[in-house]
Design a protein around this nucleic acid. Sequence first.
DNA 1: AGCACAAGCGGAACGGTATTCCGTTTATAC
DNA 2: GTATAAACGGAATACCGTTCCGCTTGTGCT
Lengths: 199, 199
Amino acid sequence: MPKPREHPEEGSKSSKRADAQRNTEALLKAALAVFAKSGVDAPVREIAQKAGVGVGTVYRHFPQRSDLIVAVFRQEVDACADAAAVLAAKYPPTEALSRWMLRFTEFVAAKRGLAAALHSGDPAYEPLPAYYDGRLRPALAMLLDRAVAAGEIRAGVAPGDLLSAAVSLCRPAYDVAPDHTQRMLGLLIDGLRYGVGAR
Amino acid sequence: MPKPREHPEEGSKSSKRADAQRNTEALLKAALAVFAKSGVDAPVREIAQKAGVGVGTVYRHFPQRSDLIVAVFRQEVDACADAAAVLAAKYPPTEALSRWMLRFTEFVAAKRGLAAALHSGDPAYEPLPAYYDGRLRPALAMLLDRAVAAGEIRAGVAPGDLLSAAVSLCRPAYDVAPDHTQRMLGLLIDGLRYGVGAR
DNA sequence: AGCACAAGCGGAACGGTATTCCGTTTATAC
DNA sequence: GTATAAACGGAATACCGTTCCGCTTGTGCT
């Protein structure tokens, strides 16, 4: 009989067979693309095909459709949050902040389809807002702190408020000139700069 | 050949055959119940069965699913708005206001499933918020005016703000003690009373 | 009352999707 | 190399939306 795993962890993921691991990743990638193109109600077959697996495999990894949606959402939130550190290392404080805000609004715009699912009342999505907030708010707080420390923007701006404001700004993004969001964001960042050095 | 209708209107509705009229009403009633129990994505067959008609009849009256949803929504909005006049005639001003607010939060809580559909981006639902506002805001304004005129609450409260506040209050209603909304509403009404006669 | 006719009706039929199930394949430990 | 269980694929099943058309029924007329 096969012994229990000797190495409960391999690489960095939980103990799963290598092919299963690959398929999980392929599915997440495929689902991201398909959701973006056809919405979260896209046929499961389409996702399976794009990932190069059978439908059975989709259900093995994500028994509920909501499991797949949640996984994609969390992955995207993580990517957006992680981008903060990368940008902070690469650009001066306020430019990093500005670029991240733009990145964030792209995330929000791209996930408009998911947003409807989140508010559907399905309890499976209940923990997502907390996850979203827990990852994104600290990321933005870090960027804000750096810009404040550099004396480039004023202190006292709550990260949560700024996130909400950015979300509001990209609300009409789909029936307005595409650079509208970008210009509004510019205004928002300029607003943060206002009064630097004033007490 | 059958002549064109002599009496273009009969009773109070548009010129339709009596059975068609009955079926439309039965469908609205059934859809209301089914939507409440199983959400707006409930099977059409289920609604048809509950109304005692065939599925073909559903599609005859409501070619698009969204037509049925919109009709149910408007009917409920109307019922809620009309309740204002009934309550105003039956209770003293502030009690009528209080009771109506409770009635309104019940409406919002019951329509959480519909709310998701409203934000789905389907253009069929686009005119609904305006309808909602156009019916409910005047209803609430009337109740507020009466309470103000009676000197029971202070003036200057915008009906729209109060509606929004009430909606926010019942947001967490589904994972909190059921009387939570009621208590919060009590606070809200008390807040309106504050400062009467001041100035 | 009886008739003619179109509006209205019911539900079978069609096309498509989600979900399950199980025989086959494959990664892993020894 | 081999045994074993995890994982896979896709056919099969179960639903659901939507259409279509022969049948029923309300209505206005005589």
